[in-house]
């Protein structure tokens, strides 16, 4: 049920944002308290790459930026 999560390197983040012509805070969010984020030891503002695999749409990649909880 949980797809693969990886922390994206800073270079990859830069080119990703450049490609999409958006800023970091426009990406979907994932909370710092999320169990998977804790497992990965990701810090605030890290971008996490999620590889979803569904029988319907096939492989697709999604990105979420780590957000500190208020």
């Amino acid at each position: 049920m949980v797809p693969k999560h990886e922390i994206l390197s800073e270079d990859a983040v830069k080119s990703l944002l450049e490609m999409l012509r958006i800023t970091r805070k426009e990406l979907p969010k994932i909370l710092e308290s999320d169990v998977i984020v804790k497992e990965l030891n990701a810090k605030e503002n890290d971008v996490i790459q999620i590889t979803r695999n569904s029988s319907l749409v096939g492989k697709s990649i999604y990105y979420r930026v780590v957000l500190k909880e208020q």
């Binding site: 049920m1 949980v2 797809p3 999560h5 994932i30 999320d34 169990v35 998977i36 984020v37 979803r52």
Partner: peptide
């Protein structure tokens, strides 16, 4: 093993699991 409580899934297995739930 699953539950029909989506918020519970999201808190135990993370937001992506909640989304698929």
């Amino acid at each position: 093993t699953t539950t029909n409580n989506i918020k519970e899934i999201a808190s135990v297995l993370g937001i992506e699991a909640g989304r698929s739930a």
